[in-house]
Design a protein around this nucleic acid. Structure first.
Lengths: 342, 342
DNA sequence: GCTGCCTATGTTAGCGCTACCAAGAGCCCA
DNA sequence: TGGGCTCTTGGTAGCGCTAACATAGGCAGC
């Protein structure tokens, strides 16, 4: 059966506003007003429309709304590997906070190497489907061929504002300093360090602060061992460091690696905390239940995520931003993995 | 300055297809064809258009594309708490796989209690902005007032197909059975169990299989202790169970809780594995580096996520689905936390 | 040289929604 | 009684894109 020129099959077999309008005996505009909670609709009309919506199972077409308003009701999040504790906690908080504000979240994760297909996904994310973008970890900005959108606000979680965007992060400097000073105050001569991924922003900040703290106290600065955030890398680092019987204190850049160090110590017969003190970072859920319970630095990563979203929402409203980097204070949680050296 | 009726400010100050078309001296349709890689465009025209796009920094407007085609290039994911290892690994894999297929991911997380604002976010997710939906964990389907879309395919990760949708999951029955039989084969009289969240699908499956396995071997079935997936709950459960000196084997429904049990044992002076054997579940990254390294059940959660997306993509192409539940086989990883009873 | 067909591009309309303007109804007060 | 006000509702156009159809030009085959 031939169709009239221009006539096209309904793409979505869902009822549209026009259907609801017809059912309720009002115009589409009135339906729109009800959907968006505009004022100046009589209670009776509203009720009639809502009844029609229920009857037809109406759902607003987000794409059409977005096209008409230029707003998408969605914020984008780009992050590296979610299985890294830090990224996860931030992303989780971003999602919660965005949802609280009535926004959906479009999440893209990147591998270090961005291949062509992935690029397509990221390009989609960064095209015109979001009202704002949260970049988790400044290192992402270095990703080749990642072109960020220039028409929506961007906020960086775990970065400094020198990256060209407002940034929110935990105060890794303060956290690492607290960890090192805690160990030095216990009487350790120096503190060894297992770093996170070499080019990660938090890893670099923690390493720098560890060095500074040692220097300030006039301690020797041992060569740090580079890890990759995993327990396996912490274990390997632990085996390496503990070949030296003089090592009495190790500060690992996260709890997973600290767990690896604890394991290495156990295997080599070094008692913690008697022979060796270990400090982690993150206060992951399991940290307090390792053997022994781990002294660590609790970061308010949920706060970072929350803050990010709030800065972003402010920018999205077009209000002026406080452009300075916000740093959230960490807290040293002392448990049983640290003690004075024997 | 008065504007003509109907004239409206450009909502997005981004160049549109019309701008590119003008710049390249072609029609908008030709630009569209280039953008979508359609055939029948001469190389010269294509080149001219591409140059114009680069010059103007053109990005396609996703909302307009979606409105015109009825396709969104996005799949939705609904999950509970991402900080639970199982959910995280599945969601992570779903994102990767969707991106590989050129789809973006819209992620919503739910708390047990869905409040009004959250509902708005979920409603947005499940309105007409996605081409398909992955529900992580069958329990989500029980969430009050969560109305799933009826016009796009839905797949459930960690559920059975009796929920009314195709389902993909890990074989918790096989995993729990392997864990229990491993312990019984070592000579333990029975095996105690710390469960996951009471109404969680995987938790229930694991508990049932644990019971079945004990019954099959004619062992007594001790009262299980209910946990909530956290190390803290595992610790509490451990303290409770270990009041009984006759307890020699504990199977925890995930590694975090197993870590808590290990901690409780250490505190009470029960040596693992000499006095007590412990088995976890998940093979979380840290499991092999606990003290002692944890015997656990490795699940292919990445496989579950991947499989989900593939089933979903099949359904989205309108192809017929194999409607049966797919179960991915787990693998028992034996480490040092299990041994014959003293 | 004409028909017929194929290829490259253009024209048109409409996806579902909302901003803007207009208009009718009801009301108050002079 | 009428002018001006508010409150509710409707008409219209257009957001940026693409499917379907239309068309111009080229070229093979007879």
């Amino acid at each position: 059966m031939p169709r009239r020129a221009g006539e096209r099959r309904r793409l979505v077999q869902q009822p549209s506003m026009a259907d609801v309008a017809a059912q309720a005996g009002v115009s589409a505009v009135t339906v729109s007003r009800v959907v968006n909670g505009h004022a100046s609709v009589t209670p009776e009309t509203r009720e009639r429309v809502e009844q029609a919506m229920r009857a037809l199972g109406y759902r607003a077409n987000t794409a059409a709304q977005a096209l008409a308003t230029g707003r998408f009701g969605t914020i984008g999040v780009v992050s590296f590997d979610l299985t890294a504790t830090g990224n996860l906690y931030i992303v989780d908080a971003v999602i919660r906070e965005a949802q609280q504000a009535g926004y959906g979240v479009n999440l893209a994760t990147l591998d270090a190497a961005i291949d062509a297909r992935l690029q397509a996904a990221v390009r989609r994310l960064t095209s015109l489907a979001i009202d704002g973008l949260v970049v988790v970890e400044a290192r992402i900005l270095d990703a080749p061929s990642l072109r960020l959108p220039d028409n929506v606000p961007v906020v960086v979680a775990e970065g400094a504002s020198d990256v060209g965007y407002p940034a929110v992060g935990a105060d890794h400097g303060a956290g690492a300093t607290a960890a090192v000073e805690h160990l030095l105050n216990l009487g350790h001569q120096t503190v060894h360090h297992v770093t996170g991924l070499a080019d990660s922003y938090p890893a670099v900040r923690r390493k720098e602060a560890w060095q500074r703290a040692l220097r300030r106290r006039g301690c020797g600065i041992p060569e740090p061992v580079t890890g990759d955030w995993t327990a396996a890398s912490g274990y390997a680092a632990g085996l390496e460091l503990l070949r030296d019987p003089g090592v009495t204190a190790i500060f690992a850049a996260n709890d997973q690696m600290a767990a690896g160090v604890l394991r290495a110590a156990a295997e080599l017969g070094r008692r913690v905390p008697d022979d060796l003190s270990v400090v982690g970072y993150d206060d992951a859920e399991v940290a307090g239940f390792l053997n022994p319970p781990l002294t660590t630095v609790r970061q308010d990563l949920a706060g970072v995520g929350k803050h990010c979203v709030n800065v972003l929402l402010t920018a999205m409203r077009g209000e002026k931003l406080d452009w300075s980097t916000r740093l959230l204070a960490p807290e040293l949680v002392i448990r049983s993995s640290t003690a004075p050296p024997a």
